[in-house]
């Protein structure tokens, strides 16, 4: 089931390899939706899907790395919310849109710095550290607008506006930006020492330490980058909604993890990876859009997403167990 699996050298037509199953799933889902709703396949709707899933994709780009490290980040939704509120606040105080976004992203990235200090210097479990940090971010987000959203005047004409709403040859600029960011990340993941070390730490931390690699530094960078991408996602979200939303985090929580773990099922069986995350985001975008078109309720989509997440996690765990081998395992394992 692995991309480099050498044992099962059955000749499989490359398009039907299991690691590409996700692409077939996406196509299948599209066919179903197209059959059920006439609007679904219209170009404008497809572009809308791409635009919508791009924000989510950017938001969880960093979380993908955290999961690769075998850690967890619970703070990203609230960091995004905080960044959106900060941007709105700065704009309301007369700062130019672009600068406001920049300041907000920089400030929100500090949450990532705090996480990495807690996890690396004080050895908090990453779950507890990020729960605490998310509490801080959530509180700050609410405090900025005294608990209510901050609307911003129309941002038409600014760079952010053209990123969020603009189109090039009919394709949303936002999607192109996401693809660009993912391409860079893909390069870092596949072609640099850093990407190599992230996976190595996630799989066998001891081997990494014995090799004299600066493990702590790698981890710190990952946590900070995760916060940064969450913040960027939050700012873009603000551009979409035309307001800073203190509570936008709640909806990202499940979606974010679902995207990352669905992504872990493709390309590198069982390992979170950026290319997979992008596909996962697209699949989730299609599902959300299609279900909305069909008039499915919140509860349906929540259950579908939760089931997908459990499915993703099961596959990941199974493939890890397969790598570990079965012989000599204790009866309770």
């Amino acid at each position: 089931m692995t991309i480099r699996d050498g044992t099962a050298k059955k000749k499989v037509f490359p398009l039907f390899r299991p690691e590409l199953a996700m692409i077939w799933v996406i196509l299948g889902v599209c066919v179903v939706f197209a059959g059920m709703s006439r609007v679904f396949l219209q170009p404008s709707n497809i572009m809308e899907i791409l635009r919508q899933c791009s924000t989510m994709a950017i938001l969880v780009l960093g979380v993908t790395w955290v999961i690769s490290l075998n850690e967890i980040d619970n703070a990203f939704p609230d960091i995004a919310a905080c960044a959106s509120m900060l941007t709105a606040l700065f704009i309301r105080n007369g700062i130019v849109f672009e600068l406001a976004a920049l300041y907000a992203i920089l400030l929100s990235t500090l949450f990532g710095a705090l996480t990495s200090v807690l996890v690396i210097r004080f050895q908090f479990p990453s779950l507890i550290a990020t729960i605490a940090v998310s509490g801080l971010a959530k509180a700050l987000a609410s405090a900025i607008g005294k608990g209510i959203p901050i609307p911003v005047p129309s941002t038409a004409g600014s760079v952010i506006y053209s990123i969020v709403w603009g189109k090039v040859f009919g394709i949303p600029v936002l999607f192109l930006v996401a693809v660009a960011l993912y391409t860079v990340s893909y390069f870092i993941q596949e072609k640099t020492r850093f990407g190599q070390y992230v996976y190595a730490i996630g799989e066998n931390s001891q081997a990494v330490q014995e090799s004299g690699i600066k493990r702590k530094r790698v981890m710190a960078i990952v946590f900070i980058v995760a916060a940064m991408f969450a913040a960027i996602g939050g700012v873009l979200m603000m551009g979409v909604l035309q307001s800073g939303q203190p509570k936008m985090g709640t909806s990202f929580f499940l979606d974010g993890f679902t995207v990352v773990f669905l992504g872990a099922v493709v390309f590198k069986m069982g390992k979170a990876n950026v290319a997979g995350t992008l596909l996962g985001a697209i699949l989730l975008g299609i599902l959300t859009n299609g279900l909305t078109l069909l008039g499915a309720s919140y509860f349906m989509s929540q259950i579908i997403k939760g089931s997908l997440l459990i499915f993703g996690v099961s596959v990941v765990t199974m493939s890890k167990n397969k790598q570990r081998g079965k012989a000599g395992v204790l009866t309770y394992e």
Binding site: I188, K191, F194, Q196, E203, V208, S211, R217
Partner: peptide, 27 residues
């Protein structure tokens, strides 16, 4: 100690992938 999903050569040169010092040097 090895990293299970890495290939043999990746494991051999773990931590000494190239002569450069920076994390983000090309692999």
């Amino acid at each position: 100690q090895v990293v299970p999903s890495f290939t043999g050569y990746e494991n051999i040169y773990l931590g000494a992938e190239n002569n450069k010092k920076t994390f983000f040097s090309a692999l």
